[in-house]
């Protein structure tokens, strides 16, 4: 008996994505952030706060995997439109919605798997840590939500843009702003310029990083939980927008 159609699509999405180049970007880049930033800023941060910067950064990088997962989703749709596979799949035994769900679930798997690998890396670098079941469920639940959010965001972009250059440029810009205007690498500070403070506050990656960090360090606050709630609402909105844009988009560029 054949596997359900969405599972077949997910399998295909993973098979065509698991090549050395993609894995280096997905796992290697966050791992490099963890090692270089972790050790590079360790002395600086420890001198000022007395806590381990690696402990601060590791959960941030785990949350950052949800952004990388989003790039997988957007990249898949973009490549399938660019190389004709979207049109080919849609004259096959799949509906548009199944195709979309296949991409979304694939993004989530990449996000969760990537975060798990980063957690193992952090374990090795920190020499061990203790996590509670509650903390773990908050961490991975938030990364799941974040993966859907950033998957939706990148799907929205890839459904609208019409050239490879535009897609790559927008993706680089979004990645930069989302990463560095968030609490992944450093905490929010009122000394930041106001526009950057606003970006920090509305950036969903801040909510992801804060909640994952709270679960990781065992100091979840009511504010972290509120942030997860806001993230859930934003995710729903962007999921709706992405679905709408994708359903209306051309399947190819003929």
């Amino acid at each position: 008996m054949a596997a359900p159609r969405i599972l077949r699509l997910m399998y295909r999405n993973m098979v065509v994505n698991i090549d050395p180049g993609t894995l280096i970007i997905l796992i290697g880049l966050p791992a490099l952030y963890l090692v270089f930033f972790g050790y590079g800023f360790q002395s600086l941060a420890s001198a000022s706060s007395g806590t381990s910067y690696l402990s601060y950064l590791a959960p941030g990088i785990m949350g950052f995997q949800s952004v990388m997962a989003g790039t997988v989703g957007g990249g898949l749709l973009w490549a399938d439109r660019r190389w004709g596979m979207l049109a080919q799949l849609l004259v096959g035994p799949f509906t548009r919605l199944e195709y979309l769900l296949g991409i979304m679930f694939t993004s989530v798997i990449f996000g969760l798997a990537g975060a798990f690998v980063m957690m193992l890396g952090a374990y090795a670098l920190l020499g061990g840590f203790h996590l509670t079941a509650y903390g773990l469920s908050v961490m991975y639940g938030t990364i799941l939500l974040g993966s859907i959010f950033f998957g939706s965001l990148m799907l929205f972009i890839s459904a609208l843009v019409k050239s490879n250059n535009a897609y790559n440029s927008i993706q680089i810009l979004v990645l930069f702003v989302v990463n560095f205007a968030s609490t992944v690498f450093y905490p929010f500070s009122s000394s930041l310029p106001v526009p950057i403070q606003i970006l920090f506050r509305i950036n969903p990656l801040t909510y992801v990083a804060d909640a994952v960090r709270g679960g990781f360090l065992g100091n979840l606050t009511a504010f972290d939980v509120e942030e997860v709630g806001v993230l859930a609402v934003e995710t729903l909105v962007f999921l709706f927008l992405a679905t709408r844009a994708y359903m209306r988009s051309n399947v190819s560029y003929e």
Binding site: A3, R8, R12, V15, V16, A79, W83, Q88, P93, E254
Partner: peptide, 22 residues
Amino acid sequence: QAESFDFTSVQGNLDVYGILWG
């Protein structure tokens, strides 16, 4: 009419397509 492929080998393309069709 337009070409359409996955980023994999010829054999991989045939295999993946067979899987997609169950």
